[in-house]
Design a protein around this nucleic acid. Structure first.
Length: 430
RNA sequence: GUGCCAGUAGCUCAAUUGGCAGAGCAUCGCACUGUGGAUGCGAGGGUUGUGGGUUCGAGACCCAUCUGGCACCCCA
């Protein structure tokens, strides 16, 4: 224990119990993505830095990416996001692909950020995108995917909600307040930060941005108007589709949702933990109709979102949504070793059972039975087989259930009928 | 990248103004060498994150550094 070389800051070691959670999350994501007919894909983990220069924010590339020169001197980036790779993959085969395209992915990403709760430097992210449609119903499909996912992992609409807005709607109203288009980007940032600041502080910030007091009170009214969506044909159709899909419990209009990224063109949304203590947003996304053209492809409308594994895992833990049986040991049975002389019998039985598809672990050392049973117990292996001289001379084996403590004798000739059925179904110890 | 808080046994934590580094759980051993969880008894386990400084004396105070957490920034 003296000199352990520490893990890289902001990375996580996935011990079996952590890996079980990650795999479980992946299975849920896969199940829901496929239920809506999305196909799995992935891009390279290493990309040239130029790929991100085209569209990602300055900060993301310059401050938050892991960049290093390769042996030839070219700057390589550990991918900080997937969308540029997706855009390239689509642009490269644009003529061959069949649209609308429904693709999903779950893989690792890296961002050089200051690690804290809910934020690490190496994380996994679910990306899911619908490319080639620009209808409100397409947006509603992605929102519906989110709701299905929340339901699948056991999160209720009292625990998490998806807040939806439309940037075009906001732009229209900012125009009515006579805020010129070139100010919009800054005003969006202003809106994005309103909830985080004291009102007076925010008001001063707004004045610094050059807004007059009637414009400021106009924005405040705008952000309090929960009926605003009724004047947006886009949002009306989205909410209508969500009603039909029985997903609207989880969805709420919120004029404060604007999203930091510049490339969103219309619908934007963000899911949050509303009942608990995790303040960070669970996922974010929206419509980005101009992005694919900006990366060099032909213009294609698109909508999608990304969800990181760190925040959702915290929330699932907080609401006790992670089933305890995902931690179970892969083996159904431990075949004990009585002595060095009998080990061949144990080993022979083990291979025999493995041939028949049973997950078996042996104890290749003749320590006290005591210790071997304790091992099975600690490892949560539900059964132990005892093969001592008595059993061997009688052509029997003793099967002990670690869960009930019951023990029974089974003839070696009756393994198929009596033993295999017992071990076939995955029984949990706890 | 900025500010603040914390770090003591495998885990959770204690140690009065600076004065002998401790407890519970866990581990290991024994009671119990062909039967796990329970009980009892016993044992091992530490350069107090790391490096320096102040002091007769530092877990505690000072400086640096690493790691984690909180608030910014940004975002999954």
């Amino acid at each position: 224990m003296k000199q352990i070389i520490p893990a890289i800051k902001g990375t996580r070691d996935f011990y079996p119990e952590n890996m079980a959670v990650r795999s479980w999350l992946y299975e849920k994501i896969k199940q829901i993505s496929q239920r809506y007919g999305y196909q799995e894909y992935d891009g390279p983990f290493l990309e040239p830095i130029d790929l991100y220069a085209a569209k990602s924010g300055e900060e993301l590339v310059k401050e938050q990416s892991f960049v290093f020169p390769d042996r030839g001197g070219e700057l390589i980036t550990l991918r900080p996001e997937l969308t540029p790779s997706l855009a390239r993959m689509v642009a490269q085969k644009q003529k061959q692909l069949v649209f609308p395209l429904r693709w999903w992915s779950f893989g690792p990403f890296w961002r050089y950020e200051k690690p804290q709760k809910g934020r690490s430097r190496e994380f996994f992210q679910w990306n899911i995108d619908l490319i080639g449609l620009n209808t409100p119903e397409a947006d509603a499909e992605l929102l519906s995917v989110i709701v299905s996912f929340f339901k699948a992992v056991g999160l209720s609409s009292a625990q998490v909600k998806v807040f939806v807005n439309d940037r075009k709607l906001m732009e229209d109203h900012l125009n009515l307040l006579e805020i010129p288009p070139e100010r919009r980007s800054n005003v969006f940032r202003l809106i994005d930060r309103k909830e985080k600041m004291e009102f007076r502080e925010w008001e001063n910030y707004a004045k610094d941005e050059g807004l007059n007091s009637s414009q400021i009170s106009g924005i405040v009214n705008l952000l309090q108007n929960t009926e605003l969506w009724k004047s947006s044909p886009n949002l009306l159709r989205i909410f209508d589709a969500l009603d039909t899909a029985a997903a609207s419990d989880y969805i709420e209009f919120d004029p404060n949702i604007i999203r930091g990224l510049d490339y969103y063109t219309s619908t934007v949304f963000e899911a949050k933990d509303i009942g608990g203590t995790v303040r960070r947003s669970i996922l974010g996304g929206g419509r980005y109709d101009d992005l694919l053209a900006a990366v060099g492809g032909d213009p294609l409308p698109a909508v999608g979102f990304a969800m990181g594994d760190v925040v959702i895992s915290l929330i699932l833990q907080e609401y006790d949504c992670i089933p305890s049986d995902i931690f179970s040991h892969p083996a159904q049975v431990l075949i004990t070793t009585f002595s060095a002389e009998t080990f061949t019998h144990s080993l022979r039985l083990a291979s025999q059972l493995r041939e028949k598809g049973v997950n078996v672990v042996t104890y290749p050392d003749s320590v006290h039975l005591n210790k071997q049973l304790k091992y099975a117990d600690r490892m949560q292996i539900p059964y132990a087989i005892i093969l001592g001289p008595d059993e061997i001379s009688a052509d029997m084996l003793a099967l002990k259930s670690l869960r009930t403590g019951e023990q029974s004798s089974i003839r070696l000739s009756e393994i198929d009928e009596k033993l295999i059925p017992l071990l076939a179904h995955k029984e949990r110890l706890w």
